[in-house]
């Protein structure tokens, strides 16, 4: 069975918690463990936080999240239409941040760690899209 949702909201920090809770509720339709749900919440929180902090650091704009699953594959796409990333390779290095003021540069590292697949697309002054995949293994009944 395939199912999907699409959310759009202003890229402000107050929506970070809403986004991870909403996607966790959607993912909970699958036969999913609490550990897997926590993984998804961390990954979504990091992705949306990056939209707010980096994508829209001096301007406002919306964040769009599309989540879908088919069988045991959950895909989450988080997109902003902000500044974009000039150097994607550098951005993916652990500890890299363009805003060193108490940012740890761990957002993408966490997304990669907590999800099974991570793809990053970005264009300067167009926006950034993160595609994350989590495979939910089938559970044995009982």
């Amino acid at each position: 069975m395939k199912n999907w949702i699409k959310l759009e909201f202003p890229g402000t920090s107050i929506n970070v918690g809403f986004a991870r809770a909403a996607i966790a509720h959607f993912a909970a339709q699958l036969d999913i463990t609490l550990d897997e749900l926590e993984d998804i919440k961390v990954a979504v929180s990091e992705a949306v936080s990056n939209c707010v902090v980096h994508g829209y650091r001096e301007k406002s704009g919306n964040v769009v999240i599309e989540a879908s699953y088919e069988d045991s594959r959950l895909e989450i796409i988080v997109e902003d239409f902000g500044h974009g990333i000039p150097d994607i390779d550098a951005a993916q290095e652990t500890g890299f941040t363009t805003l060193p003021e108490e940012r740890m540069g761990l957002g993408l590292t966490f997304m990669r760690e907590y999800m099974d697949k991570l793809l990053l697309f970005s264009e300067v002054e167009v926006g950034t899209k993160v595609v994350m995949v989590k495979n939910i293994p089938p559970r044995q009944a009982g």
Binding site: K41, V42, S45, S49, E102, R103, M104, L106, F110
Partner: peptide
């Protein structure tokens, strides 16, 4: 119940 890298940054500071 939840912490991400934003929270960790504050603690590290």
């Amino acid at each position: 119940s939840f912490i991400d890298s934003s929270g960790l940054g504050v603690i590290l500071g």
